[in-house]
Design a protein around this nucleic acid. Structure first.
Lengths: 218, 218
DNA sequence: AATTTCACCGATAGTACTATCGGTGAAAAA
DNA sequence: TTTTTCACCGATAGTACTATCGGTGAAATT
């Protein structure tokens, strides 16, 4: 049907894309242990040995996949923060703060699954990717708390913000996975829960900052 | 020094224990992919082939490890609930509700790490173990919410309780891991955060149950 | 004391994967 | 047109692991 008048480099990068797409699918479906050059090459429709035309070794494929995931993550997060800024209304904005990461996760749930696996797997080559994702979310959430007026001055406060971001992040991931797995059909319900959890944390921050500053001007 | 007048079966079960201990350590340190009969046998000080005197195959070892982990988990959880009942004071009790699972996790962090990995790894043989642990915590927390007077009547409410339990559970795991990794030195601080998050969720439940009763035009 | 049992051993067949090598034909360059 | 390049191929060496087998000696049984 479609004629394919491709230049050599076009054909090559097309094959490379095929390999990467196949690898991501296999990584998601079978885990890092199931990601073999045999399977990836077969799924991409080339000979196993041709895998090495595109990647120096299996390790390099993993590295590239991590970069790929990192790039998608950064893009999604940037977009999320951009959209969030467009909702000046405080309540609605707070909700968007959670709906947007949830949606970002649900767009590529395999990236989260891969990351969650890698994070606690000492044999994984994707630890860096996992760390990057965690840091990105922590930033996202920290910036959000800062926008609400909560800044961390001393060591203890900073640790507390980090713990809150960590906890909310973990909850966000859990609910997003639950949504993807079909247990929580409505993303808005997920966002509501996260808003509620988050409000509890805010109340804690408010309570103790008031207590420590005694005469809080409000 | 110590004489070893062991019967044959004593010696055998001792070797078996050595294998299981070695396997748990390797599983924690290198992940499921790194758990080979070669390494386990070597770490336990026996020949690789002797591994098969104790286990039918590699799969059976995994199964036994999961049972082992499940048993430890159940014991820890039972103990936790027993202790929690001893604190009638409401505020302190609420805090204990979180400190106790946190401590249970920190006593055997490798079990949590193994579980978190297995949970999202399709190639893992420990999915059942992971599911059991998740269900156990959900029960723990659901019973706790029920004790506070929150019962789920309709589908939506039940789902909400499940989401809350899921979210709090994820946050608990995240903070416990953070403690084990040295980022959050004080477990009480972790418990405080969890109490705060949990209070936010409780407020949501209170708010909407009131609202739905008010607006219910029966 | 004679016999049986069995936990453990070394050797090895079988399996799955990684990575390399020389060959091929079509695209690209000369 | 002639030559060079190179993406892809099949074959295969090398590696790591699983699981089985027959042999051994000391414990257990008779």
């Amino acid at each position: 049907m479609t004629s394919t008048p491709l230049t050599r480099s076009e054909a090559k990068s097309q094959t490379r894309r095929k390999l990467i797409r196949a690898a991501l699918a296999i990584l998601d479906a079978e885990g890092e242990a199931g990601l073999t050059t045999v399977k990836v090459a077969k799924a991409a429709g080339i000979a196993q040995s041709s895998f090495y035309v595109h990647f120096k070794d299996r390790q390099e494929l993993l590295r590239v996949l991590a970069e790929e995931g990192g790039a998608r993550l950064r893009t999604a997060m940037r977009e999320a923060r951009r959209q969030a800024r467009e909702h000046p209304d405080d309540l609605e904005r707070h909700r968007e703060t959670f709906r947007i990461p949830l949606e970002a996760i649900c767009r590529h749930p395999e990236l989260l699954r891969i990351q969650l696996r890698a994070r606690h797997d000492p044999s994984s080559s994707l630890q860096e990717f996992a760390a990057e994702r965690a840091a990105a979310y922590r930033e996202h959430h920290a910036a959000d708390l800062a926008a609400l007026g909560y800044t961390a001055d001393d060591e203890r406060d900073r640790r507390r913000l980090e713990m809150i971001a960590d906890g909310i992040n973990a909850a966000t991931n859990a609910l997003a996975i639950g949504h993807v797995e079909g247990r929580y059909p409505d993303l808005d319900e997920c966002a509501d829960i996260l808003v509620a959890l988050s409000r509890g944390a805010l109340r804690l921050l408010r309570a103790t900052s008031t207590r420590s500053e005694e005469g809080d001007p409000h």
